[in-house]
């Protein structure tokens, strides 16, 4: 199958074909997700190199565990879950576990040790506003922060976020509004 046709397939169709041995479909999935994941994981790790390592590991796992993907879930949910779990493991191993963590089902996310951007790749913080926004996002309550990141930084759909966090779509939207309200308060002086 040529590359043009691959572009037309959904993630789930690609995954199915990859499970049947079509490696081009795997490459297409990597292409679709590598930068999205990098962007997301960067805001967890706050460092380019370790974020890229996590994204690499994620795709190696996708390759090795293709049989474990079941059609009932969205591919995006599956891939993000792998990546976020790897990031959390890496952060807790390095003792850098900060407040950027995704809500676990079992309330395992109760640790809230604030990380003060100690090892941030400062090249990302282009200007003062970026800096203010980042620290405002950082200071949000976790349940708001994750939604703002997934929606405005990762550009996920409400349904994808709902599936990933295992909460109703309505809750995604009410928290998103609330998160933006809190952010507005923090950056009000900059956006007027």
């Amino acid at each position: 199958m040529d590359m043009m046709n691959l572009k037309k397939l959904t993630d789930e169709e690609l995954m199915l074909k990859f499970q049947n041995g079509d490696e081009d479909c795997y490459s297409e999935l990597v292409e679709r997700y590598k930068n999205k994941l990098m962007n997301h994981i960067f805001y967890y790790m706050k460092d380019r190199e370790s974020a890229e390592d996590i994204v690499q590991d994620t795709f190696v796992r996708v390759y090795l565990n293709k049989e474990k993907y079941k059609e009932i879930a969205k591919v995006s949910t599956w891939i993000y879950t792998i990546a976020i779990n790897l990031a959390k493991t890496a952060l807790s191993r390095s003792g850098k576990m900060n407040s950027f963590s995704i809500t676990g089902k079992d309330g395992e996310n109760d640790y809230e040790i604030k990380d003060k951007h100690s090892s941030t790749d400062r090249d990302v913080l282009k200007n003062e506003l970026s800096d203010v926004i980042l620290s405002s996002i950082d200071s949000l309550e976790e349940k708001f922060r994750e939604i703002v990141m997934l929606r405005d930084i990762d550009e996920m759909s409400y349904e994808e976020i709902a599936a990933l966090l295992q909460i109703p779509t309505g809750t995604v939207k009410s928290r998103l509004n609330r998160a933006r309200l809190n952010l507005r308060d923090a950056i009000a002086d900059y956006i007027k």
């Binding site: 990597v30 960067f42 974020a51 690499q56 405005d152 509004n177 507005r184 950056i187």
Partner: peptide, 28 residues
Amino acid sequence: DLEKTSDSVKSLLKVTVSDSFDAVLRSR
């Protein structure tokens, strides 16, 4: 106001993988 807030979050610099990403992944 909320819209402007959302736009500023969206305007945060996007981080992308390095140029060697595909080659490293392929060899792994």
